[in-house]
Simulated scan of single mutants.
Amino acid sequence: MSDKNGWSVRNLATPSPFEFAMMLLSLLSVVLVLVMTFGHLDGETNRLLFFIDTSICLIFLAHFFVGLFRSRDKRFYLRHHWIDFVASIPAIEALRIARVFQILRVIRLIRMSHAYLIPLIKQRKQTTLASLLVSMVTILTFASILILIVENGAEGANIQTAEQAIWWALVTISTVGYGDYYPVTTSGHIIGGVVIVSGVSFFGVITGYMASVFVSPDDNEHHQRNEAHKAEIKSELELALARMEANQRQMEQNQAQILAQIAELEKALSNKK
């Protein structure tokens, strides 16, 4: 089971942080598909959901091919992860239904989440990157959807299309603030404020992560040093035990020689008598 770089159910017992992130994005993707299928939305909102769904699909495809590239058994990987590839193909309506199968993994993940907490905490760097990826996609998704809904059709609004909504969300979360697109409604201002605060927090976490990468020792290097130290201690203990056993054998031999000499002396004394 060492060749598991994807999201298979067999691999679900010990998922990596990025596999955990892909499961959460699968849940978000299924929600978008359901909204596009059964929701009565205007054309621009549907286009926006389509763009977001396509972006998530590209993330899924990138994760799939990275896992395939890293896998030592390509056939095994394709045999157990082909549904992930099918569900990740964008712009084909029928294939989106395949993502429902991914929800089964998310449900099992939630039921067993307590068993995943400690392993994820131990993988701090990967968990941080995976959390940033999920947070960024989630914030951009909800920010662009909500701003388009509240601004579309408002008097004097300049955020009217899906592209404009996505661009506004990207600019706002990055706190760049070009000012070419901006909300004019009260609800839009509230949404913008929340996105700005989220963006400041988001990039604050990125800054802290980058600082930890350069300041803190690498987890693998630290683990290797610990393992080397444990091996050194074990070797020293084994050497000490070997010396103790050798000393004990030598003492037993000396004791046997002394007893033999004592026996000879007693025999010699008895002969003189």
Rank of each mutant, 00 (worst) to 15 (best):
W7N: 07
M244Q: 12
R70F: 02
Q253A: 11
F69Q: 09
E93P: 02
L237C: 04
Y77D: 00
I56C: 10
F50V: 05
L28W: 13
K272Q: 15
H189Q: 06
I83E: 13
R96N: 04
E238T: 04
H40E: 11
F76W: 12
T161N: 11
I191M: 02
K4T: 05
I233A: 11
A62V: 15
V66W: 12
V86Q: 08
R10W: 08
R108C: 05
G193A: 07
E266K: 14
I262K: 14
G204C: 07
F38W: 15
T14W: 01
F20W: 05
T138D: 05
G204S: 10
I139H: 01
V215L: 15
D53F: 11
S26Y: 11
Y182F: 15
V176K: 08
L237T: 04
I173N: 04
K267L: 13
L49E: 01
S71W: 03
F51P: 00
S71A: 13
L32G: 00
V33Q: 09
N46R: 13
Q255H: 10
T14I: 00
G199M: 04
V176R: 07
R124K: 08
S235I: 00
S71R: 03
A242D: 05
S131I: 01
A263H: 13
R96W: 04
A263W: 11
E44D: 03
Y209C: 14
T186M: 14
I118G: 00
L27I: 08
E93S: 09
A165E: 00
L68V: 07
V194A: 15
I97S: 01
G67T: 03
R99V: 01
E245S: 11
N158V: 13
E238G: 05
H223Q: 12
A157P: 01
Q250H: 10
A115H: 00
A162D: 07
L237K: 06
R249A: 09
Y181A: 05
D180C: 10
G192Y: 00
Q160G: 03
L95E: 01
I258N: 12
P183G: 04
L170I: 14
T207L: 15
F18Y: 06
A169K: 01
I173D: 03
A94T: 06
S8H: 14
D53W: 10
S187Q: 14
S216H: 12
G67W: 01
G193I: 02
R124M: 03
V100Q: 04
L140K: 02
T207N: 13
L117P: 01
